[in-house]
């Protein structure tokens, strides 16, 4: 604890950096994955290609991705943007398939009845498909949130500050307490964001709380 007390400002600063890097990456992943998942759901043939590419991208380890992306995009390696893009690519790759599943999970009878009642195409997406896709989507968002928060730490290896700096700095200066603080801090952040997601999910899907089975019948 004494190390933490002595370095509280530094740790807090790194925590803030960590949040600034992980949250945008997660948000971008979710938005892009919903778009790709929707495309894959709507046009299954395109979907096979999109989801296949996503799964290939996902098998590329994060650190090499972090080095290749700035070269491809012509942005500096040691910038937060690089890390956010790399993690967003990663998160999207992981989430796109789930997003397609989420749209597939919407009961066809409900969609059809909604269409027959006169929902416009946009209305059908925003008012019917998207809210009903939330439960499956959320399970995927929780996974990428936890993995994104954990992956932000590798940015420290190329000089992008986050709680990961506690890991590299602690290793180089042989301070175990610093590494432990980094590990615990990262995990705590992941847990906090996860709990937040669960709460948001509950608020967004009150009908499931009322009916524990969640079934449409």
């Amino acid at each position: 604890m004494s190390w933490l007390e002595a370095n509280r400002d530094y740790v807090l600063d790194m925590l803030v950096q960590h949040v600034r890097l992980s949250v945008p990456a997660i948000v971008i992943s979710v938005v892009v994955a919903i778009v790709l998942g929707r495309v894959a759901w709507r046009w299954p043939r395109v979907g096979t290609v999109v989801l296949g590419t996503a799964s290939l991208l996902y098998s590329v380890p994060a650190l090499p991705l972090l080095i290749v992306i700035p070269v491809l995009l012509g942005i500096p390696l040691r910038s937060g943007l690089t890390l956010v893009v790399a993690l967003a690519v990663y998160g999207t790759a992981l989430l796109a398939g789930t997003a397609a599943d989420a749209f597939r999970s919407v009961d066809g009878r409900v969609r059809e009845a909604a269409e027959a009642m006169g929902y416009s195409r946009a209305g059908l997406f925003w008012k019917v498909d998207l809210p009903l896709a939330v439960p499956v989507l959320l399970s995927g968002v929780r996974v990428i949130t936890v993995s994104t928060v954990s992956l932000v730490t590798i940015g420290a290896l190329v000089g992008i500050p986050s709680l990961g700096n506690l890991l590299t700095d602690g290793f180089q200066r042989d301070i175990r307490a610093e590494i432990v603080t980094g590990v615990v801090g990262t995990m705590l952040l992941a847990v906090v964001l996860d709990v937040l997601l669960v709460v948001l999910g509950r608020l967004a899907t009150p009908w499931r709380v009322a009916t524990p089975t969640g079934g449409a019948r």
Partner: peptide
């Protein structure tokens, strides 16, 4: 299309209510 559908009442088969409303 959309106006037409809104002007016609539609009773679906079982399971056609919006489960989230």
């Amino acid at each position: 299309k959309v106006e037409l559908r809104r002007s016609i009442g539609y009773v679906p088969q079982a399971g056609g209510l919006l489960p989230h409303r």
